[in-house]
């Protein structure tokens, strides 16, 4: 057992001996890690280290690629995600992408409720209204858009669009939210709004995010995970990792020697 990897008690998400390969290229090598409930966990590492793949395994979005080979287990609240239907799993996990991607043909309202509508879940109007309002309030977008819910989501600014996408992911009340560099396409003001938002969201949700931005990881994450060439090098409290990295590679990455 690697001593640089912190053990988490009662993790909401537990990854055990996970390996993922595309064709013959191993993207994730034997990763074992637990994610603590109601925290922000940052996945860091240089490009190509497998951090996006690791994130995508968690809601099995990596299966969209071809010729993938996955071994190991991932347990979400004790249930093996590889034994669930991916559709059910994805309703229990929200995902937010690098670039804001609201559905261009839909209004703001329909974007938030899209997960329900397109899944053919029938609801009363009042129920829908409530979900939309709650989700938009959760991302602090409600006051900005409450009078223009019928407008297209693509009319919003980039930062607002990204918050809309987070609201869309929150609509199902997911057990865990996965974010793949959610601020890499945003300006600094929009970025800091999203960061503040993530800090408030962790009261009710568990957040795992991939980031390229080390200072962002330092600002908002409770736990950090450093990956290098598909391996999990170090995992621990963000404060400890940034002040006192255990592994030489972590230290070199955090001090900007490579990456």
């Amino acid at each position: 057992m690697n001593t640089n990897i912190l053990e988490i008690k009662d993790p909401i998400l537990s990854i055990e001996n996970l390996s993922v390969a595309y064709d013959k290229n191993v993207a994730v090598k034997d990763v074992s890690v637990g994610i603590k409930k109601n925290t922000v966990t940052a996945i860091m590492g240089p490009s190509g280290c497998g951090k996006s793949t690791l994130l995508r395994v968690l809601n099995r979005m990596h299966e969209l690629y071809e010729n993938i080979h996955t071994t190991g287990t991932v347990l979400l609240n004790g249930e093996d995600v590889f034994k669930m239907s991916p559709i059910k799993l994805r309703r229990r996990t929200g995902m937010v992408f690098q670039r804001p991607n609201p559905f261009p043909t839909m209004s703001i309202y329909d974007n938030v409720i899209a997960g329900y509508k397109l899944n053919g879940i029938s609801q009363k109007k009042a129920e829908r209204d409530e979900i939309v309002e709650r989700s938009l309030r959760d991302v602090a977008l409600w006051d900005e858009v409450k009078d223009s819910l019928t407008k297209k989501g693509t009319f919003l600014s980039g930062g607002q669009q990204q918050r809309l996408c987070i609201a869309r992911a929150l609509a199902f009340n997911p057990e865990i939210i996965l974010l793949d560099e959610p601020t890499s396409a945003l300006d600094p003001v929009a970025t800091s709004k999203i960061e503040d938002l993530l800090i408030t969201l962790k009261e009710n949700y568990t957040i795992v995010m991939v980031t390229h931005n080390m200072s962002q990881a330092a600002r908002i994450s409770d736990y950090s995970l450093f990956m290098y060439l598909g391996e999990l090098v170090e995992y621990g409290k963000t404060k400890n990792m940034f002040t006192n990295p255990q592994d030489r590679r972590t230290e070199e990455y955090l001090t900007g020697k490579f990456g």
Binding site: M61, I87, L89, R90, R91, F103, A114, N119, C165, F172
Partner: peptide, 9 residues
């Protein structure tokens, strides 16, 4: 991907 990630078939 956004659609599939919402669990939409």
């Amino acid at each position: 991907e956004a659609g599939l990630a919402l669990g939409i078939p």
